[in-house]
Structures are given as structure tokens and as C-alpha cells.
């Protein structure tokens, strides 16, 4: 009897300890972002916590800083170009990898997913070298190409995962009912793929907008994207304006999280 009690007690203590660490980790994941948001409204001109007042001044200053606005536009452009390229290149490739019936299909999957193993810093430096060899200087174009190359695998993988779960019988039924290949794609496959395509687009856009590991080597000298600007701002600026920029980015990521969770569902995202 006392043995069973002892087990029950150690069990309880052990599980409680694991829960405690879990809750601590969750708090550590969320708290820093909340602190940054709180600081962005502080009235003092240096960064400290907790804030002593409430003001929108730092946001006003943010929008009155032309370098930051310019950087935001650059990042927006890169994000859209990267998303467009990854959609155009990634969706057909995913279909070939899953539905294709040809020799070397496995090899194709390995090849197109390989860039995911290449660290961003290495790819960025390699593309900078390649650009320098053919006289293509760093620019918005080079940055977009480089980031698209870096993130294409993610788009392919998301679409592939969804496609593997789609029943081939649906496509066969459509063909048997007399649909052309285009009709089958347009009315059967594409609608079923849309959630994955949306999720892939959201992720590639974020990467295009936020990537620094590749972008820092390939961005144009006059067209500094937001992460590059932010990196030097964090190193050189001690005012809560940096917190305001950060808070704005956090708000953006919350919006994108909402889009992804309503299109694909958070649980499916992680499968």
C-alpha cells in the first residue's frame, strides 16, 4: 500500500515538474514580444521596463523616418516578387514530384528540396559571388531571386504534403466523366490545393519580407530592405522607436497567423 502511495507521489511531483517547465517555456515564448509592445508606447526616450507613460510618439517618428518607409517598400516588393516566383515554380514542381510517373521522380524531390539544407548565409554569399562573376550587382532583383531560391523548397513541400493526401480517384473520376485535363485541374485539383497554396504564399511572403541571412549579401546598396535597416537600427539606436518598428512587425505576423489559421488551420500546418 505504501509502495503504491510512493509511486503516486513521485508520479505527481514528476508530472507537476514537467508541467511547470512547460508553462515556463510558454511564458518565455510570449513575454519578450509583449515587453517590446509595452515599451513601444513608453514616454521616456530610453528603453526601460515597465513603461511609465503612454504615447504614440514613437509610431509617429517611425512614419516620419524616410529610410524606414523606403525599407518597408523594398521589403514589400521583394516579398511579393518572391511569393509570385515560388507560386509559379513551386506548384507545378510539387505536382510533378507527387503525380509524375517518370524515372528519377525521387531524385527530383531530393534535388528541389535540397536548398533547404543549404544555410541562408552560404547561399547568400554564393549568389553574391555568382552575381559578381556575371557583373550583376546586388539589387532588389538579385535579392528576390536569392530569397526565392532559399524558400522555394518550403512552398514545394507544403503543396506536396497536401497533394499526397488528395485521393487520385477524384482526378480519375473527373477524367472518366469526360473532363479535359485542364478542366480537371481547374475544377478538381486546384480548389482542393488552395489551402496549401495560401499557406505556402503566406510563408514565402514572410520570408521575402523578413529574410536577412540571404538578403544582407544580395540587397541593393540604395534599396536596403527592412530587416537590414532594422539590424543596424537595433545596433545603433537606443530609443523606443526600435520597439515601435518591432511592435509593428509583431502586429503583421499576428495578421498573417490569422490568415493561415483560417485557411489551412493551425493543426494541419504542423503535420
Amino acid at each position: 500500500m505504501s509502495g503504491a502511495k510512493k509511486i503516486a507521489l513521485t508520479d505527481r511531483i514528476g508530472v507537476a515538474a514537467i508541467y511547470a517547465i512547460g508553462l515556463l517555456s510558454l511564458a518565455l515564448l510570449v513575454a519578450p514580444s509583449l515587453i517590446v509592445v509595452a515599451i513601444s508606447f513608453d514616454t521616456r526616450s530610453y528603453v526601460s521596463f515597465p513603461p511609465v507613460g503612454f504615447t504614440f510618439d514613437w509610431y509617429a517618428k517611425l512614419f516620419a523616418t524616410p529610410e524606414l518607409i523606403q525599407a518597408m517598400w523594398v521589403s514589400l516588393k521583394v516579398g511579393l516578387i518572391v511569393t509570385g516566383m515560388c507560386l509559379a515554380l513551386g506548384v507545378p514542381t510539387a505536382i510533378a514530384c507527387v503525380r509524375g510517373r517518370f524515372k528519377g521522380r525521387q531524385a527530383l524531390s531530393v534535388f528541389v528540396l535540397f536548398p533547404h539544407m543549404v544555410p541562408g548565409i552560404v547561399l547568400g554569399i554564393a549568389i553574391l559571388f555568382a552575381g559578381a562573376t556575371i557583373n550583376a550587382r546586388p539589387s532588389i532583383g538579385l535579392q528576390s531571386l536569392a530569397v526565392a531560391c532559399f524558400i522555394l523548397a518550403v512552398m514545394i513541400r507544403i503543396v506536396m504534403a497536401r497533394l499526397m493526401r488528395l485521393d487520385v480517384a477524384l482526378e480519375e473520376a473527373s477524367a472518366n466523366l469526360g473532363a479535359t485535363r485542364f478542366q480537371t485541374f481547374r475544377h478538381v485539383v486546384l480548389p482542393l490545393l488552395m489551402p496549401a497554396i495560401w499557406a505556402g504564399a503566406a510563408f514565402t511572403f514572410i520570408e521575402g519580407f523578413d529574410n536577412i541571412s540571404v538578403a544582407i549579401f544580395t540587397h541593393g546598396h540604395r534599396d536596403r530592405p527592412l530587416p537590414v535597416e532594422l539590424m543596424s537600427l537595433v545596433q545603433n539606436d537606443n530609443t523606443p522607436m526600435v520597439a515601435a518598428v518591432s511592435a509593428a512587425q509583431i502586429a503583421l505576423s499576428v495578421v498573417i497567423l490569422g490568415v493561415v489559421s483560417s485557411t489551412l488551420g493551425l493543426e494541419k500546418l504542423n503535420d
Binding site: G100, V112, I127, A146, L152
Partner: peptide, 29 residues
């Protein structure tokens, strides 16, 4: 165009991506 590329059972829908990755990843590495 996407559909014609996409609905084949062949290798060719992947050609643009393979070319893209060759130019931007294989050659640079």
C-alpha cells in the same frame, strides 16, 4: 499554361524550377 504544365504525368512541370535552382543554387555553390 499552369494547367498544361501541371496535369502531365511527366517531368516537364518541374523544368522551370530545376533550371531556376541550377542557375541560382548549383552554379553559385
Amino acid at each position: 499554361i499552369i494547367a498544361r504544365f501541371a496535369n502531365g504525368r511527366g517531368f516537364w512541370p518541374a523544368i522551370p524550377a530545376v533550371a531556376f535552382l541550377t542557375v541560382l543554387m548549383v552554379i553559385p555553390l
